[in-house]
């Protein structure tokens, strides 16, 4: 039992199931309905796509605070090209994604090659890109062409396209991160960067790739969001970076790197999505959501420390020795 709980994917899945059961019993007419669940999934699909990239970055021991801004910027740029330049959807989307990739390249290059701390680099980029997003979208670009909106508003098997895209992204990256040579190296970089360099792993190049991927996924999320709403707002994705990092850490990543799975990123966002959904159903004030999520995050990480200490050592001695080393 204790062994199972150590595995964050398992403990998180069990928690989600438990919460869902309780919610279904309490609000049998509201929570377990098809409409509610599909709305829940739709709401968390954008965060999940971003969380996948963030998970890869956290595995490598970095993170990116600019993702929320990239969501707004990329959606805004694509909308601008569609609405003001009359571009076809496909080239507009590709240019939007390219711009997102460029942001990631800049982040990655400055972190990996110039040695700027990722916190500072992406914090600065968060501000810069947010400014650019607000500039491009002004007070918002509405009435986007239907052949663009189809991308985020169509349904397949009664489920909205963003949810499908989320599942495809998670599946692809789950396979890559768990089985592909290049992605496996991120665990080594996060585990011990110096040792990774001395083992012949091209750390700088891989770090840049991770930042580019994260930005590209944020860009995809931004375009999807604009298409789903049929509009692009300069303020969309605000606060997303911290929400996504919360989800990814809940999903088993560690800020010091080397840990986590892509499935964990999905489970993390699902968990947050379910908790938020229930609190809305229960008519709890929105402020409480943030408080509850904060408490859950600390509890989850605290439990990790308690469960993952070496066998045969009491928690007290373990914590004591932590502060020494």
């Amino acid at each position: 039992m204790k062994r199972l709980l150590r595995d964050r994917e398992v403990s998180l899945s069990l928690s989600i199931v438990a919460i869902c059961i309780v919610a279904s019993v309490t609000w049998p007419n509201i929570f377990p309905t098809f409409d509610n669940i599909s709305q829940l999934l739709l709401n968390l699909s954008i965060d999940s796509i971003v969380a996948v990239g963030m998970m890869i970055l956290l595995i490598s021991g970095s993170f990116d605070l600019s993702v929320g801004s990239v969501v707004a910027f990329c959606g805004g740029l694509t909308a601008y090209l569609l609405y003001y330049q009359g571009m076809f959807p496909l080239p507009a989307i590709l240019i939007g994604l390219a711009a997102a990739g460029l942001v990631g390249l800049l982040n990655g290059y400055l972190v990996a090659k110039a040695g700027i701390n990722p916190m500072i680099q992406t914090l600065a980029m968060m501000g810069i890109i947010r400014g650019a997003a607000l500039m491009i979208s002004g007070s918002g670009i509405q009435n986007l062409p239907p052949d663009f909106n189809v991308f985020g508003q169509s349904k397949f098997l009664a489920i909205q396209s963003p949810v499908w895209i989320m599942f495809v992204v998670v599946l692809i990256f789950h396979l890559l991160v768990s089985r592909n040579i290049m992605f496996r190296k991120y665990y080594y970089i996060g585990g011990n960067e110096k040792a990774a360099v001395l083992s012949g792993i091209n750390v700088k190049k891989l770090k840049i790739i991770a930042f580019v991927l994260t930005s590209l996924l944020a860009g995809l999320a931004g375009i999807l969001l604009a298409s789903r709403l049929g509009a692009a707002l300069g303020t969309s994705g605000r606060g997303m970076e911290l929400r996504v990092i919360t989800a990814v850490i809940l999903g088993g990543a560690s800020l010091s790197g080397g840990e986590g799975k892509v499935v964990g990123a999905l489970l993390g966002t699902v968990f947050i999505g379910v908790v938020s959904n229930i609190m809305i159903i229960a008519r709890v004030s929105g402020y409480w959501q943030d408080i509850v999520l904060g408490i859950i995050l600390i509890a989850a990480v605290g439990m990790d420390i308690a469960f993952n200490r070496p066998a045969g050592i009491s928690l007290k001695t373990y914590l004591r020795n932590l502060t020494i080393s």
């Binding site: 040579i181 496996r184 190296k185 080594y188 110096k194 040792a195 990774a196 792993i201 080397g258």
Partner: peptide, 28 residues
């Protein structure tokens, strides 16, 4: 500090420099 990935398994450490030896077409 420089040789080991302390939180990783013995096998992960041993294979750290030669992942391609355990992979077929990039799949581990």
């Amino acid at each position: 500090e420089q040789g080991l990935f302390m939180n990783m398994s013995i096998e992960s450490n041993i294979i750290a420099g030669t992942l391609d030896a355990a992979a077929v077409r990039s799949w581990i």
